[in-house]
Design a protein around this nucleic acid. Structure first.
Lengths: 337, 337
DNA sequence: CACCAAACTGGAAGCGTTTGCAGGCGAGGC
DNA sequence: GCCTCGCCTGCAAACGCTTCCAGTTTGGTG
């Protein structure tokens, strides 16, 4: 394995000059630069990451913490982050923290604090203020996506307002019996979004003078199959059936549509369904939804962090509301007569 | 930021002893170890990764290369790998190489060869022999999952035989008009699995004396929506309709079922569908499939690599056939009369 | 009780870069 | 023609650990 020394020798230059030539930092004459590059290419030289990190303090590596990689939203964020980082020449270290507690703590202590990453993107993860302070203390900026991070920059959508908008869409169509399929409490501590969307639902209902019936707020685990089961009990239950369902995610909306079909209910004739996400499968089901482009959110997070890292000084905390698109398809219509 | 020196000072020990005490390598008296650990805890000491990597040559970091993070199969592998690595105290560096060519090359050169990772797991990625040789030359073991890697260890399932088994299951039920939904050629160069499964399908058909009709082999892009579109043309076309479909993945099988429903075809009464994967959604659709447990494959890959890394010497190349489970549900039955 | 091996410890030499510093050199201004 | 300035270059000192080596202690054995 050729080291920078070998390159220097072959190029007839000093190690320092080669380093500057290859990294682009500092002044190097064009001739020397060419010689260094040629020698490096000849030897197949690749600088050692740990050595260069150690000496320079930069890692070119950012950490991404997600609670799942299966759910569409998270996979999309990962994709967006990954692409943006590859372009920038950064590595992506993925921490998929499925369970709570133990695992989570160890990731924080053993991994994130180990100076291995230059910055952290945390998705739907509620870090405590002290945890955030810890990270910032060692000059590791954090950006949170879809989760409130007190003291750190965040990217989020207007969950409350969008939930309201979704419900209002149904109300405007004439629906009064509107149910809500909300997210699981597995993530309760970390993931406040379900509750925020639920609040938006309730606000819109009350604002329109509609009653929020507790049996019409059902909980599922954010997956298609979970929502399917929940929707079955909602739609097949003994209680009066709603004419519309606002699901807190597209996957749950799809589960609802599948359950409705199984009961012989036509969407949207017998039941309107609206989701939230922008899932690719939405088109297939004609799903009306709010597209939040998580890929773009991931890419934006990277841009924010990288700008900050280059900028040098500690960046300010900023809370970005990511724009969304209301996508009206065929799963919502006026209620049955 | 406290360094090991500070810890040594506080513990009244030498740097060397502290290093040994905390890493567990070498002999240290219980008393010294306790003192070192206490001092480290007091100071909130976390060893610098780059420094320890540089000095020791170990990275505790492995690279995972996947062509997608959205498709269920890949997400599952990522999950399995991630969990296994977290347990082992390793970092996971994710390379999501969506496009071919340029990006792929740069990942290989700029990232994988940079000694940043101790080993590489490549999923459904066909590296050339010279690329593999390059990695092995710098002592970076590789394990391939679901893709042939000449000269490297691999974990795979018996795609050919399993495809045959799936088709034979349909044949035994009495089907003769069996179509095959195969994978896209986007991955053509890297991803040989679709062709292998196709070959298994053809072999089983011919062995049973059934004709392989070209219009009954349709291609989709491995997604639900892609398969849905393909299945629509297959089932709604002018040609004679098959009574059964063998889809090369569960996602494609689900797309097929959705398309069938749209045509008013009942599954399995009018159309039998069999998939391959073990997707969680399969249960919801009553999908008969072959469960290949990609999570387990990911975990196994990690175990293989870590055993090899600990073992020290260059490990031998071994090709592991991962066991699968044939899961019979309700999407397959005897053909309509 | 002497001796030897094994356990333990500390000093110091790396690991392979980056970068501060200072010297050298050519060009431009007076 | 001389001085200054700025670009270029090389030396050497970090960066923060690990580990070899050698020295010291401990425990066990003949």
């Amino acid at each position: 394995m050729a080291g920078i020394k070998d390159v220097a020798e072959r190029a007839g230059l000093s190690v320092a000059t080669v380093s500057r030539a290859l990294s682009g930092r500092g002044h190097v004459s064009p001739k020397s630069r060419a010689r260094a590059q040629a020698a490096a290419a000849d030897l197949g030289f690749v600088p050692s990451y740990q050595a260069s990190s150690l000496a320079s303090g930069r890692n070119y590596n950012i950490g991404l913490v997600v609670p799942s990689v299966h759910r569409w939203y998270f996979a999309s964020v990962v994709e967006g982050v990954s692409a943006a980082l590859l372009d920038a020449g950064y590595d992506l270290t993925l921490y998929n923290i499925t369970e709570r507690s133990a695992r989570r703590q160890s990731v924080l202590n053993d991994f994130l604090l180990r100076k291995r990453v230059d910055a952290v993107i945390a998705v739907a993860l509620a870090l405590t203020e002290s945890e955030i302070a810890q990270m910032l203390a060692i000059h590791r900026p954090i950006v949170g996506i879809g989760g409130p991070l007190p003291g750190a920059s965040t990217i989020r959508i207007d969950d409350h307002g969008l939930a309201e908008a979704a419900v209002n869409h149904l109300i405007r169509l004439g629906h009064t019996r509107i149910a809500h399929l909300t997210g699981d409490s597995t993530y309760e501590q970390d993931f406040k979004i379900p509750r925020t969307r639920l609040a938006g639902y309730e606000k819109a209902m009350l604002a329109a003078g509609l009653s929020v019936r507790p049996e019409w707020t059902v909980t599922a685990d954010f997956t298609v199959q979970g929502a399917y089961a929940a929707a079955r009990s909602l739609l097949g239950g003994v209680t009066e059936r709603p004419t519309a369902v606002f699901a807190a995610s597209d996957e749950m909306a799809i589960g609802t549509i599948l359950a409705a079909r199984d009961f012989g209910l036509r969407v949207p004739d017998d039941l309107s369904v609206i989701g939230m996400d922008g899932h690719e499968l939405g088109a297939l089901f004609g799903l009306t939804t709010i597209d939040q482009d998580p890929r773009g959110q991931g890419a934006l997070a990277v841009r924010l962090l990288l700008d900050g890292l280059d900028g040098g000084s500690d960046q300010e905390v900023l809370d970005t509301e990511y724009p969304t698109k209301f996508v009206i398809r065929s799963s919502t219509a006026v209620p049955p007569a």
